[in-house]
């Protein structure tokens, strides 16, 4: 589904991705871990096409198409979803109106007619229930005055509504208490299928107890320095990141 080859990118003059290689297939969940500043969130930004991030080399294929050629909105329409680490507040725009606009824009891209109001509401109710999202929040302004946990849960609700092929969860666990973490994880687990895939970016192994990954990658200094099965996360939890840093330093000398 997603094939990243030797991806390099910089922000202003700082090289932040120094050759990322990653293959994600349908049905898989990949966890990306690593210390602060290693490039985890930058990878998410580059993949989703955030301005200021300049790709300096490599390629990214998404279902065989050159992802980097697409505008940010078209990447989303192609089925790439980012659950933001810091979801944005937009006053006066109701959550539901926003979602309907988004959904219909995506449908229009695929030459599908807009969803009828009735059908849309049915879908909303179904997904709300699935991810345990408070119905009261759907009519409020987008993320405005939401608590940290509510914002994160709203991201998962949006994910459920838009039904993307590949979802990147950028530190979705940060700032969540244990109950919220469980609800968010349950939501993701219910949405997992053979047809979609997830990239879960996190600092902590804790989230991976709930969303069990097929693969774990360690990102350090703009490169994936170690990949393994889910047990790798436990090892990281135990030993910290220092032992990962060693070989890189040595290797680059």
């Amino acid at each position: 589904m997603l094939s990243i080859k030797n991806l390099q990118a910089k922000v202003e003059d700082k090289q932040i991705l120094k050759g990322i290689n990653l293959q994600v297939n349908a049905g898989e969940v990949h966890a990306i871990m690593g210390p602060n500043g290693s490039g985890k969130s930058s990878l998410a930004s580059v993949l989703t096409g955030r301005e200021n991030f300049e790709v300096t080399g490599g390629e990214v294929l998404f279902d065989g198409k050159d992802l980097l050629e697409f505008s940010p909105e078209n990447r989303a329409r192609e089925g790439l979803f980012l659950a933001f680490q810091y979801p944005i507040e937009i006053p006066g725009v109701s959550n539901i109106n926003f979602l309907r606009t988004a959904l219909n824009e995506i449908r229009a891209y695929h030459n599908e007619p807009p969803l009828e109001a009735k059908e849309f509401l049915r879908l909303t109710r179904e997904k709300q229930k699935l991810v345990e999202f408070d119905a009261k929040l759907t009519n409020r302004s987008l993320n405005e005055g939401f608590s940290g946990g509510e914002k994160k849960r709203n991201e998962i609700f949006q994910l459920a509504m838009l039904n993307p092929k590949l979802s990147i969860l950028d530190e979705t666990d940060s700032g969540l208490d244990i109950d919220a973490l469980r609800i968010v994880s349950n939501g993701v687990n219910k949405l997992r299928s053979e047809k979609n895939a997830f990239i879960v970016i996190t600092h902590y192994q804790r989230l991976l107890e709930y969303i069990v990954p097929d693969f774990v990658h360690v990102l350090y200094d703009g490169r994936i320095v170690k990949s393994g099965a889910k047990e790798l996360a436990l090892e990281l939890e135990e030993k910290g990141y220092d032992w990962i840093k060693e070989p890189v330093t040595t290797a680059s000398v």
Partner: peptide
């Protein structure tokens, strides 16, 4: 830019994003 990008990332182009934000405001 953050607001615009957030809406872009949900499949909404920039013109529509501005319209949505302004009308909300």
């Amino acid at each position: 830019e953050d607001q615009i990008f957030y809406l872009n990332q949900r499949g909404i182009d920039t013109e529509k994003a501005v319209a949505l934000i302004v009308n909300g405001y």
